[in-house]
């Protein structure tokens, strides 16, 4: 089998069920410190994920966009398992809700290390939601190749 034909087996699972199961050409996941892309023959890896956009490119070139709120990814033998806290299809995100969540998070007074950290997490989550929602609205009518050629801001 040539490398070009190799596919990843991807499963994205949450405590409430599977969000994506099946083959994929490649996957881009939001790591805790930036984005991580996985192609077939990727080295075995375990990584922590943060808030952000999960892109799964199906074998036919279609890209599925999800919003992922923290989790872990495990890659081995062309199998990508993503254990996520929650996964939402990007087009189902509501930018207004996200903005409100961000405002709420920033308006909450926080004292002490734990509270400040919790507030930061909420704000990060809301910001990432906003970003993914905005991108979903933007690329709604673009093809996968066009999106891939766009720079990530």
């Amino acid at each position: 089998m040539s490398d070009a034909k190799r596919m990843l087996t991807v499963s994205v699972v949450t405590p409430e069920g599977a969000a994506y199961e099946g083959a994929a050409a490649h996957v881009v996941a939001p790591a805790f410190d930036g984005e991580m892309a996985f192609y077939p023959t990727h080295a075995p890896l375990v990584g922590v994920l943060g808030f952000g956009e999960l892109r799964v490119t199906r074998p036919d070139g279609e890209v599925e966009y999800f919003y992922l709120a923290g989790g872990v990814v495990q890659v081995a033998d062309d199998e990508v398992s993503i254990l996520a806290e929650s996964v939402t299809p990007a087009r189902k995100l509501d930018a207004n809700v996200a903005r409100k969540a961000l405002d709420d998070a920033l308006a909450t007074p926080a004292t002490g290390e734990v509270e400040i950290e919790a507030r930061l997490r909420r704000a990060d989550d809301a910001r990432a939601r906003l970003r993914v929602a905005a991108r979903a609205a933007e690329h709604g009518h673009l093809t996968a190749d066009q999106i891939l050629s766009q720079p990530v801001q």
């Binding site: 405590p15 075995p44 890896l45 375990v46 990584g47 922590v48 872990v72 254990l83 806290e85």
Partner: peptide, 23 residues
């Protein structure tokens, strides 16, 4: 298998343990 841990195995574990309690 020799896994690459990102960040370290200890840090991932400390992220996962609370998750397993919640689960």
């Amino acid at each position: 298998q020799n896994f690459v841990f990102h960040p370290s195995a200890e840090q991932i574990l400390s992220d996962l343990l609370p998750r397993s309690v919640r689960l």
